[in-house]
Amino acid sequence: MLQKVAARIHPTTWWLLAIVLAVIAGTASALWQTAAIGALSIALILLFRENATWARSLGFYLTLAAAVIVIRILFRMVFSFSSDEDQILFHLPALTLNLGLGEINLFGNVSLRSIMGAVLDGSRLAAIILAVAIANTLANPKKLLKSAPGALYEIATSVSVAINLAPQLIESFNRVRRARSLRGRSKRTGQLAGILIPVLEDTLDRSLLMAASMDARGFGRRSAQSAGELLAARTLGLAGLVLNLVGIFILLSGFNVALALVLLACGLLSAGIGVRITSKRNARTSIGRTARTGLDFLIYLACTLALVINFSGLVGV
């Protein structure tokens, strides 16, 4: 039942949700916030995941998230010393190293506050990892590639060709390795090149055939686009990137975070319009494309709200 709902949700929606949750997790300042995002992510994955290969990696992400927290605590114990006022848990012999690049303080007192800080820091990355896991386990990568913007259609096709090709390649490797043994050991080229070259040659030949057949079936058709439109799209793209760059500078200088965020948003808008114009040259249709439904827009609304609340709290508006 829920799986059917999940299949109707647009793959890009899962990605947007994942990125928004990751951003919120990254700005979280209390353990309960990161824990809540982590729990929400796990719950979403368990509720909505389908039985497909890409959906079976939750265990991997959980292990990774736990490992991140553990590594963070170890780092804090090794590299950080606590001040005297803290509640000291235990002592380790203090060491100071100097590699000529400034002093490194190792071990020393380990306080409860520093361990708790490490847990919070670690849980932040752990929550981000789990949030991204939503996208990876719930969005069908092939559907995602199909909903790439028209401007990226060619590259997306090439990526999906690569995904389809990979299993065949492993077969080719095995076939060539077997055939290789018939020839006897050559002194000219290493074993690796002796296998890699035939596989590469063979796959390249096949892919050129494939490209020919795809082109003969209409791949590469573009509707005519005026030079003016193309120039407009490129200019908008450039303007967007410039705005982004300035936004990043302002963000890093600490001058005004709110201004930086506004600049970044404007930059994205401008670049987005540019991409939209370039995408128009594609008159393609798609048989498998999932349309966005009300559910998707509901999720977009929720994401926008969450972001606004999150950042207005942080920036102090």
Binding site: R206, L209, M210, A212, S213, A216, R217, G218, R221
Partner: peptide, 17 residues
């Protein structure tokens, strides 16, 4: 691709295409 609506072409190894 400009004549794709007029001509259908199948090359030597269709399984590879």
């Amino acid at each position: 691709h400009e004549t794709a609506h007029l001509i259908g072409y199948v090359n030597q190894q269709p399984e590879g295409a």
